[in-house]
Computed example of a mutant assay.
Amino acid sequence: MTTKFRANEQAIKEIVCMRPVWTQEVESGEAELHYYHIMDALNRKWQTVGVNVSDVIEVFEKGHNDTWTRILEPAPFDPDLTDNNLINMLRIGPDAWHVRNAMQIILNSVVRRNAFVSRLVNVNREDICKLLCIMKNEYLLHNQLSDEAFMHMYGVNPVEALSIYFLESVDIHIHWEWRDAGGTSEKAIQYKKEVPFMTLNQAIERAEGERNACT
């Protein structure tokens, strides 16, 4: 059985029937199309249309469009929004561990998490991953951890420092690869200044190449 794609998989908290879409009276027995307001799990107010609640949900799940289904009010800034809160609101299950990890690493502050909510429109796996990728590149290019902060963090916890600096998942084994390749905090800074979107694996390969060239 084929599962129907839903552009909006967002959980709905509240549905309120509003005024009719058309001003003229409908014939007796004919279903009347109404505007509906929906409050989703991210606390955004949407407007959509339908003849009943089931119809409204089906229209809403087809996603945003400028004609019928759109966000009327964005979510208010939530100073207490944690990564776990956001993951649960978006209903990202344990099977999507790579998405969960990416959210925790890239959206590593309450400001970034709220920015993500304000920029996300339809809630589905593809759109979530696409926005995470866009925001990661923006942060790497325009909002990188300062050299001083990175070097201080690297001296205390190099695994965490590399994860935040490259905005990717880093464990002790990857850190050992980096260290054994001749990687240092200074080299990480140098590489990222030259190529802001360089991954840690690419940095390891470059460090290994430089080390081998010297032997």
Rank of each mutant, 00 (worst) to 15 (best):
A31K: 10
R179E: 08
K192I: 07
D78F: 12
L132W: 08
E168F: 05
Q47A: 01
D171L: 05
L86V: 12
M135P: 12
L145W: 00
N124T: 13
V111H: 09
N143Q: 07
L131T: 05
E58F: 01
L120N: 06
L86E: 04
I174C: 00
Q202G: 04
S169Y: 14
R100E: 13
I172V: 03
S185Y: 05
E25T: 06
P158G: 07
V110Q: 06
M151P: 00
H173F: 08
L132V: 11
N137S: 12
I128Y: 08
M18L: 13
L145T: 02
W176A: 07
P79E: 15
I57F: 06
T69D: 01
N85Q: 04
C133T: 15
R179I: 11
E186D: 09
N137C: 11
G182F: 02
L86Y: 09
W178M: 01
S163A: 09
E194C: 03
P94H: 14
C17L: 06
L167P: 01
R112Y: 11
T82E: 09
I87Q: 05
R211N: 01
P158D: 05
K136H: 15
G50K: 02
R119Y: 12
A203P: 02
S118R: 07
P94A: 15
M103T: 04
D95T: 14
E58C: 02
M103I: 07
P74C: 11
K4L: 14
N137H: 13
D66G: 04
A115E: 10
E30S: 14
E138V: 09
V49H: 01
W46G: 11
C17G: 03
N201I: 10
N201P: 02
H173P: 00
M1Y: 06
H64W: 09
Q190C: 10
R70G: 07
M198E: 09
C214D: 00
H142V: 08
I106W: 09
Q104W: 03
Y191S: 10
I172D: 01
V53M: 07
V111S: 13
M18R: 12
G155M: 03
N137A: 11
L81N: 03
H98N: 15
G29E: 05
H64L: 10
I128H: 07
T48G: 03
H142R: 13
I15R: 10
C214P: 00
K193I: 05
E30M: 15
E73F: 02
E186M: 04
N201G: 07
N137T: 03
I172C: 00
G29V: 12
N122P: 06
Q47F: 00
T23E: 10
A181R: 00
Y139T: 08
A75S: 10
T2I: 15
L120Q: 04
R125H: 11
F77N: 11
N212G: 00
Q202I: 10
E208L: 03
E148H: 01
A7M: 11
A11T: 08
K136Q: 12
V21W: 05
V195K: 04
V51P: 08
L131V: 11
I12W: 09
S109V: 14
I71K: 13
M103E: 10
L86I: 14
S109A: 13
H64M: 12
V123Q: 02
D147V: 03
L140F: 00
E177G: 04
K13E: 12
Q10E: 15
A188I: 01
N108W: 07
R211S: 01
I57Q: 09
A41F: 04
A149Y: 03
M151F: 04
F116R: 08
